[in-house]
C-alpha cells in the first residue's frame, strides 16, 4: 500500500467506528419523538449490553487447550467474591488483576 492508500484505509476505519457510535443518535434525534419501543428497549438494554461485554472480554479463553482458561476463571470468580464482600471497585479490580498475574506466572 502507498502512504495515501494507508491514510484512506485509516479514514475508512474511523468512519466505520463513528458509524457504529453515531447511528442510533442520528436515527433517533433529540428533537423528534423516539419510538416507544426504542425507549422501552433503551431501559433494559444497558444490563444486556454489559452482559454481552463481559462475555466479549472472556471470548479468547480456550477451555479445551492450553491452560483451559483456569487462570481467567479463577481470577474472575475472585473478583466477583471480593466485590460482593467488600463492594470496593478499585480493590476488586486490583485484587483480581494481581491474582491473575500471579496465577499465569507461577502456575500456568
Amino acid at each position: 500500500m502507498t502512504a495515501t492508500q494507508q491514510i484512506i484505509t485509516i479514514i475508512m476505519v474511523v468512519l466505520g467506528t463513528m458509524t457504529t457510535r453515531f447511528l442510533p443518535f442520528i436515527l433517533f434525534p433529540a428533537n423528534k419523538a423516539t419510538p416507544v419501543f426504542i425507549q422501552s428497549l433503551g431501559k433494559v438494554l444497558p444490563s444486556a449490553a454489559l452482559g454481552l461485554l463481559v462475555i466479549y472480554c472472556l471470548k479468547d479463553i480456550n477451555l479445551l487447550a492450553g491452560n483451559h482458561g483456569i487462570p481467567e476463571l479463577i481470577a474472575a470468580a475472585f473478583v466477583v467474591i471480593l466485590h460482593v464482600y467488600k463492594r470496593n471497585m478499585l480493590l476488586s479490580i486490583a485484587g483480581g488483576t494481581f491474582l491473575y498475574m500471579v496465577l499465569i506466572s507461577v502456575f500456568f
Binding site: L53, C57, E72, H83, M89, S92, T97, M101
Partner: peptide, 13 residues
C-alpha cells in the same frame, strides 16, 4: 504479563 486482565476485572465489577 497479565496486566491486561485489569480491563476484564473492570467490566466484571
Amino acid at each position: 504479563q497479565g496486566l491486561d486482565f485489569v480491563m476484564t476485572a473492570l467490566l466484571i465489577v
